[in-house]
Write a protein that binds this DNA or RNA. Structure first.
Lengths: 229, 229
DNA sequence: ACCTGAACACCGTTCAAGT
DNA sequence: ACCTGAACACCGTTCAAGT
């Protein structure tokens, strides 16, 4: 018990690089996806950021699809596992959906991945939770499946849209202008034929994303409540 | 035996190949997408099917993203333009959504494309139509945007799921088995923790796709009706 | 068991050269 | 104006060879 101090650290070992592991690979992939965008994730870039060869990565993950799924699972599973609180069942369902909303806002590439591969393991946990919520809300057994599916689809649609928006913003910064140009191109100089689209464009410029998400969610919840007993 | 007519085939004109055009390129792309799947569409395959060089295609379409968008637009726009009939406004909205449903069932790659690039021109027309429907249903102006967005997102989520399912079916034929294995992997031998997921799996095996789609749609319509002034 | 990095089999896209 | 097809700059993935 003598030996105070940092004797174990005295002669610091030469900066030895930590060995690879599946977790480190996934963590590095997430860092690239978050920091440089979806297109920046290549096995070469990943190998460089891990100071290794591109072939080494294949020892820890089967292929790129698996890597993307693992990255998605990593950021999604915890959020979903911890969500679902709320005094009323409908609040619990809202809380689960908002958990996914927040993850996608923070990591838009998760939206892309969910839109391509909806049934990640974490989404199964999500389905379980929201089904339990609908059940507690009094939705009849026979309609549980429809309600759960509808909510998941609403979520996936939001994921797709958010991811596409993030991709576009990534390369042309000016969100408002992009939108105006887009609507103008759509309506091709006949704005009178597309009054609602122009309303959409105005709302898109001013709306609060989270609020709109919740409003859509509430439509489904109201529809589900409508099915009670 | 030796001489059965066929005189109409006498001195056939020399097989002169028709010149390329944007429409022919898009049509050939659709044929490949429908017949051989999304992965089969490459500029080389396209060039071969058109008996030309891969570089020639670039004279008619800017790049692959544009080509995919044009193909999507081609199969989607007509369906959407002709849809929206119905005596009651809600029926009209249903009819528009079902139009997209049918297109995706017939061309699953449209689902993939919509999930990646939601705001194709045809989708703008769709938004216009369903907004008009909600308006006619009595939804207040301030909620039109939410209702339209929610319906579009539900549609996009369905598109993503249908496309993913089609991709999986494409390479492993046995739909039922794929599903069972998937659910088994998700629930990792603790089926008691995932009762609703097992319900989902059972329903997925037996449900009618169109009916489920409509049921989810009606949740949103019911929610919207709930907003009536 | 784990890592290296060159090599392979593709891609989308470009472009000098042809008609 | 339109087409050709080789060439370029990437990819994901493999694999003999190293430790």
């Amino acid at each position: 018990m003598s030996r105070m101090g940092m004797s174990s650290n005295d002669h610091q070992p030469k900066q030895q690089k930590p060995s690879l592991s599946r977790e480190r690979v996934v963590a590095a992939a997430i860092a690239i996806l978050d920091g440089e965008g979806e297109n920046a994730l290549t096995f070469r870039a990943l190998a460089k950021s891990l100071s290794t060869g591109s072939g080494a990565i294949y020892w820890h993950v089967a292929d790129k699809r698996t890597l993307l799924a693992a990255a998605t699972e990593h950021v999604l599973s915890e959020a979903i596992a911890q969500s679902g609180r709320g005094t009323h069942p409908a609040d619990a369902v809202r809380d689960v959906a908002l958990g996914v909303f927040d993850v996608i806002e923070a990591h838009p590439w998760v939206g892309t991945e969910l839109a391509r591969e909806p049934w990640q393991p974490a989404m199964t946990t999500l389905f379980e939770k929201i089904s339990a919520g609908f059940d507690a809300m009094g939705v009849p057994r026979s309609a549980l499946f429809y309600c759960g599916s509808a909510l998941v689809q609403y979520l996936l649609g939001f994921a797709a849209q958010a991811a596409a928006a993030a991709r576009h913003d990534f390369q042309s910064q000016d969100r408002t202008e992009v939108l105006t140009t887009l609507v103008a191109r759509w309506t091709q100089g006949e704005p009178a034929d597309y009054p609602y689209v122009h309303l959409l464009a105005d709302e898109l410029r001013s709306h609060d994303e989270r609020e709109a998400f919740l409003a859509g969610l509430d439509l489904i919840l109201a529809g589900a409540r409508n099915l009670q007993g």
